[in-house]
């Protein structure tokens, strides 16, 4: 995983609640056995006018001109601004892979579904929860500015706009540490292998039928 560095990026609005992972990446694309290549099919049902199947040449498909990510400058967005319960539904990590493959590094929302929230950190996508007043305000600012950009500074947990206004955000210490250093969870857990083994010894003595 790459280290998460401070950056400034274009913000795309997704002004609806309960955006589910079926919408983020429709099921037909889950047949892939790879982790990459999902970007062109991010929000496929909303993004294209024809129905998509894996293996299609997406450049040949009919694009929905009204969909936000088909418009300039949002095509190049790195930050997605959303509402309540973003990423609800299926546990598919493909939803996170599709967002990062498209180029997103951050999703800001009033709330996230738990599994999506968890999955995000594993692939270097930072989910930021802000209260609805602040999110409303960001939507308003975005509407008033073409090419609206925000800077994300994970180290100092700050979002700032071009006028210099700053919004602090919360993030779990351990997750922040892993993102900033591009660390692999499995490697970290395996440092505790001896502790896992001694747990097992005691555990299976108590409940041998679980072995």
């Amino acid at each position: 995983m790459n280290k998460f560095q401070k950056f400034t990026g274009i913000v795309a609005p997704m002004d609806r609640a309960n955006v589910d992972t079926d919408a983020i990446i429709p099921k037909q694309y889950l047949k892939s056995i790879k982790r990459t290549g999902f970007g062109p099919n991010l929000f496929d049902d909303w993004r294209y006018l024809d129905s998509g199947e894996p293996g299609m040449d997406n450049n040949e498909r009919r694009v929905n001109p009204d969909f936000v990510l088909n418009k300039t400058p949002y095509k190049y967005a790195q930050i997605l601004l959303a509402r309540e319960n973003f990423g609800c539904g299926s546990s598919r990590e493909h939803a996170v892979w599709a967002l990062t493959d498209f180029g997103f590094k951050v999703v800001i929302a009033t709330g996230f579904a738990d599994i999506f929230f968890n999955n995000s950190f594993k692939s270097g996508l930072l989910p930021i929860v802000l209260n609805s007043t602040v999110v409303d305000q960001l939507f308003e600012e975005l509407e008033d500015h073409e090419d609206y950009q925000l800077s994300i500074d994970l180290e100092n947990q700050l979002i700032s706009n071009s006028a210099g206004a700053q919004i602090p955000f919360e993030v779990d210490e351990f997750r922040k540490h892993c993102l900033l250093n591009g660390l692999d969870d499995i490697g970290l857990t395996l440092q505790h292998a001896d502790q896992i083994k001694s747990f097992e010894q005691q555990y299976y003595q108590q409940s041998p039928w679980l072995k």
Binding site: S91, E93, I115
Partner: peptide, 30 residues
């Protein structure tokens, strides 16, 4: 690796869905 793993909670088990990275994590570390 499936959100409806919550089903198994009917048995007084703590059961929940995980993403693919966590599937790998459980495979490698239990």
């Amino acid at each position: 690796g499936d959100s409806h793993t919550s089903t198994h909670g009917a048995f007084a088990a703590l059961a929940f869905g995980i993403g693919t990275s966590e599937v790998e994590h459980v495979m490698a570390t239990q």
